[in-house]
Amino acid sequence: MLWQQLVNGLTLGAIYTLLALSFSIVMGILGILNLAIAELFMIGGYFGFTLIAANFPLPVAVLGGMAGAAIAAMLIEKIGYQPLRGAPVVTPMLSTLGFSIILQNVATNFWGSDPLQLPDEYLGRQYTVGPVNIGQMQLIVVGATIVLVTLVAYTVQRTTIGRALRAVAENREVSRLLGVSADRLTLFAFALSGALAGVAGVLIALHYGAITPYLGVEIGLKAVAVMVIGGTTNIWGALLAGPLIGVVEVLTVAYGGSQVRDFVVYGFMILILLLRPQGLLGGARSDQGQRV
């Protein structure tokens, strides 16, 4: 029983990790919380879902969800963020809140407010390993997460564009003096962040076999807690906090009931804010601000 919970928790944790990374990339570069990410996650899920329903192969659906959310994220940057640069940080954050409400509305109008179900054959096979049942979709979720996190880590740490991204995050003006187009890199950061949210959305839809327009509020926003717990100044904190919160949440539901689930996750976040505001992996200084 416990092992089964751990496997389920890690699957959920994989989704949280991707989403927390998504929040963290924008946070790290611009110091703002892009609240629309939770809804980009939901929109990505719907895009993927629609493609699956139209009988496209799974990889196409995943890429479609990724691309759809990335494009939406870029639009948000162009319309809702760039014109507001230089305004106090709360202004672009409010603008992303506006976008998240719009996205939710679009989804309800377009796909309806009732959950959509995946065809049964899509839930895939179950594998039994000792006492644990692992679904094919769970393997896909965890596998895709490992691949994506590795790719993002490699891009940010080892490539020229990743280095430029870190330069913009650390000091926008200095990065410009080195020839980095800070505006373009900002757009790239939004796109990368949107792509991760979109994939996470498709994966969660596959995992649950269903999707609703309220996915962002129910699951997406929890990634903010995951990011805070991992440490907003260190994007790799999500790698620890994602699986941790996933497991804690699943165990809470299993042994405490689903009514205390959010209480535990968000309570954990508040506890971290009070006791260790830099997060689990954050550096010694919490005032240091953004870091990629």
Binding site: A167, E170, N171, L178
Partner: peptide, 19 residues
């Protein structure tokens, strides 16, 4: 000076050949 303090010395130099 405009040093990128979170990067290594070598990464700073690498930013010099960015363009």
């Amino acid at each position: 000076r405009g040093i990128l303090g979170r990067m290594t010395v070598e990464e700073n130099l690498a930013m010099g050949i960015y363009t």
